[in-house]
Every structure is written in C-alpha cells, then in structure tokens.
C-alpha cells in the first residue's frame, strides 16, 4: 500500500465493463435465489400448516428445506461461492459442525433416555 493513499477520499469513477457485466449477472442470480427462498419458505409453512401433509413426512422435509435455504444464503447472498473464500468456508463449516454436535448432545444426551 502506498503511504500516500488517503483512505477517506471519496472513490471516483465508474466500474469497468467487466465488473458491470458481472454485477448485472449477479443481480439476476440474487433475484432468482430470493424467489427460490420465498418458494422454499412457503413450502415449509404449507407442509406444516395444511392437514394434507403427514407430520412424519413434513418434519424431515422442512429440516431439509431449512438446510437448502441456509446454503442459498451463505453461498449466494453472502458470496461464499467466490474465489478466495477458502478459510471462510473452513470456519463456517467448522462452526456448523460444532453447533450440530452441541444441538445433538443437548437433545439426546441429557439423561432422559440412555443410549
């Protein structure tokens, strides 16, 4: 970094053609993933809210939908699919792994049922 760079100067100029094209594509991708999320969420609510879907099916189904939606958020809205996010992927998935262990332990290993 050059020592004469001023970090509080307003950034001037327009993005490059390449960036413009990328951003345009991105807008489309994001809108599609948003619509997908709305759809997924509605499916989850409907499968619980309506009597047509048996609970034995609905519960694993909505858990799966939640998983899909979280991956959409992480990889599209939060850009974890981009290059240079290796360490971020490591930390987020490690966090999810430890969180899953915690949830499992607190659900099943609290002495109510012996495994």
């Amino acid at each position: 970094m050059s020592s004469h760079e001023d970090p509080s100067a307003p950034l001037q100029g327009a993005p490059s053609k390449n960036t413009e094209r990328k951003l345009k594509n991105e807008t489309r991708t994001q809108l599609i993933s948003f619509l997908l999320m709305i759809f997924i969420t509605s499916m989850a609510f409907i499968s619980i809210g309506s009597d047509a879907v048996p609970n034995g099916f609905a519960i694993p189904f909505i858990l799966m939908l939640a998983g899909v939606q979280v991956v959409l958020q992480l990889y599209f809205f939060m850009h974890m699919n981009e290059k240079g996010t290796g360490w971020i992927n490591v930390m987020i998935w490690s966090g999810l792994f430890v969180a899953a262990l915690t949830v499992g332990a607190l659900m099943f290993l609290i002495g109510e049922v012996k495994y």
Binding site: I92, S94, G95, A99, A100, T102, G104, L106
Partner: peptide, 14 residues
C-alpha cells in the same frame, strides 16, 4: 460469524 454459529447452536440445543 463462525463463532456465532456455535453460540446460536448452544441456544438451539438448550
């Protein structure tokens, strides 16, 4: 945020 995942995991588990 990776740490926050465990934080909320603990709350969900509880």
């Amino acid at each position: 945020l990776g740490g926050e995942t465990v934080l909320f995991g603990s709350l969900f588990g509880t």
